[in-house]
Design a protein around this nucleic acid. Structure first.
Lengths: 150, 150
DNA sequence: TTGTTTGGTTTCGTTATGCAACCTTTTTCT
DNA sequence: AGAAAAAGGTTGCATAACGAAACCAAACAA
């Protein structure tokens, strides 16, 4: 292996995103961060991830601007890992993954957690829309490619 | 390693989704499939992935119901890999990743491809909304957890 | 101040990945 | 039809990523 391929230079935004958070653990860490976990041990307990790997992933997520390492409130002190503004912008990705899972990955009658509107307690919806408000699917869209020149 | 941890049994739909398409290559293959690629060689050329890995990923995606292997039109014949209905339901995930990338992973003035409404040619939007139509962010939501019993 | 938890690092063995060579079946060219 | 090329893989080997467990220093609690 010459090293895992990097997609940094790809013109496709999805590819670049995967380059940043496409790792198997990274999005799970982000998911937990959305649920309020901040400490090394919390992530480790929640995910069952090896400590050396968690160390690496947290560092990477921090270096990429998804998480920030802030000194924990106390005196000493230890660090807490919190989502940055950029990290919070991953919310739609998490919701999209969730909705896919809900629809396809649970048997009938099998229970799962549900993301709800805090105010009314009703499940949230995610949709893709045109500028004039129509909800659309993959077939009603197309990709406008930009060709770069040297 | 006793084998990569499986999240199949997790009650969190996001986790299960990641279990199915959280692999580094899988979502890139799905992305290409959304762009109309169907053949082994097309994916290989587009992604620069090693052939043995591509073989493995295509098989896995088929076995999980994301892609289907259909005999190519001709006489012989070779197989084409197409998104299933379930696979097409990954569209919001792709769009969410794309929007994140567009917002954070390109420098100002740096060009990238854009997903547009086929009819009007305008960029599409993705948003998360309550049942009564308000667009909301992570702070206005909460997770309703289901505790399973034995 | 002694012990315990937190937040790691190190070592080592296993798994995943990439590369290149090879192979068989289609398709294309003549 | 026959030869050549391309498609669609498979195999073997080298290396990088990963996981488990042991170890360790700084914080914190008693």
């Amino acid at each position: 292996m010459v090293g895992r391929k990097s997609l940094k230079g790809d013109y496709c935004p999805s590819a670049r995103s995967l380059d940043v958070i496409g790792d198997w653990w990274s999005l799970l860490i982000v998911r937990d961060a959305f649920e309020g976990l901040t400490r090394f041990s919390e992530f480790q307990k929640s995910l069952g991830i090896a400590k050396n790997i968690l160390t690496d992933r947290l560092r990477t997520l921090v270096s990429r601007g998804i998480l920030e390492a802030v000194p924990a409130g106390g005196s000493g002190s230890r660090t807490e890992y919190k989502l940055t503004a950029m990290g919070r912008d991953l919310f739609p990705v998490m919701v999209a993954l969730r909705q896919f899972g809900e629809r396809h990955l649970f048997g009938p009658g099998e229970e799962h957690s549900v993301l709800v509107d805090r105010e009314k307690g009703l499940p949230v919806a995610l949709d893709i829309r045109t500028q004039d408000g129509r909800t659309i699917g993959p077939d009603e869209t197309m990709l406008l490619k930009i060709l770069e020149e040297e």
